[in-house]
Computed example of a mutant assay.
Amino acid sequence: MSSKEHLIRFLEELTQELRESENTDESIYRTIRRFRVFSPFLDDEFEYRLHSIEKKIDSLIDRPVASCRMASSDGERVTELMMGHGPLERAKGVKYLSDWMNSPTEITIADPYFIKNSGSIPEADYKNSLQGLLPLSLKKIELFIGPRTQKYHKASIATWFNQLCTTRGIQLEVFHQEEVHDRVWLRDGGDALVVGTSFNGLGNKCAFLLNLDAADTASFNAELSRIRAEYTCSNQV
């Protein structure tokens, strides 16, 4: 017998019993209580399950709320910025980076492909966007990039960038290394932004720009300190 048929039979029997019983509240209640089987559960089982559900809901309410490691500071958005493909998306990404930096005196950029133009954009556009990104307040740039001997080192961009820093009086410290893979930008040694692609790759593919939380920023800074101690610092890219 299906649950539906069982319930119909139960209600028919209950109705018949009520019709034949004394017409008082107490007698009606006694009649209902005698029909203890309620599809698909017994009365006690039904009450037990309700009680279990209430306990589970209470435990969920009392559970400490853990913030998402990829959530923004306001806790409402998973990502800070999602970039798509194309020149407009690249411009949006560069502007976001510029707004995020605000007016720091020092920035650290960990990006193994930083001084490479992939050819997807004209070299002049690459230089202009990078020059416009760097705020006038900047006094020092620290770079963690790939070795000069690697194919992603672009000599013409490197020469231009060295001259730009000299002209603007920016102290340049460069660590040519192969230990940092992800692209991370830091302002004044504190706040960090994970950039899903290299600067030359903004707008080439879909990528995220995400704020790094304090704990991961501290861990990342600790790794950078270790690299500083193990690698030679140069004043040119």
Rank of each mutant, 00 (worst) to 15 (best):
M1F: 12
S3F: 12
S3Q: 10
L7R: 12
I8A: 12
F10Y: 15
L11N: 03
T15M: 13
E20R: 10
S21T: 13
S21L: 04
D25N: 11
I28T: 11
I28F: 15
F38R: 13
P40F: 03
F41E: 07
D44C: 06
R49Q: 08
R49E: 04
E54Y: 11
K55H: 03
K55A: 08
K56Y: 08
I61F: 08
R63G: 05
R63W: 07
C68W: 11
A71K: 05
D74M: 04
R77H: 15
M82Q: 10
M82V: 11
H85D: 15
H85G: 14
G86C: 09
L88S: 09
E89S: 12
A91C: 04
A91M: 08
V94A: 09
W100T: 05
N102S: 11
N102G: 00
S103R: 12
I107K: 01
I109H: 00
D111Y: 02
P112E: 01
P112Y: 01
F114T: 06
F114W: 06
N117F: 05
I121K: 08
E123Q: 10
Y126C: 09
L133R: 04
L133C: 07
P135T: 08
L136C: 08
L143H: 03
I145D: 00
G146A: 13
G146M: 02
R148N: 04
T149D: 09
Y152A: 14
K154D: 14
F161A: 03
F161D: 00
N162Y: 01
C165I: 00
Q171P: 00
E173G: 01
V174S: 00
V174I: 00
E178Y: 01
H181V: 05
D182A: 05
D182T: 08
R183S: 15
W185A: 12
W185E: 06
L186V: 10
G196L: 02
S198C: 09
S198W: 03
G201F: 11
G201C: 06
G203S: 05
C206G: 13
F208N: 06
L210F: 02
T217D: 10
A218C: 08
A218F: 11
F220D: 07
F220T: 07
E223S: 15
R228I: 02
E230G: 00
V237S: 10
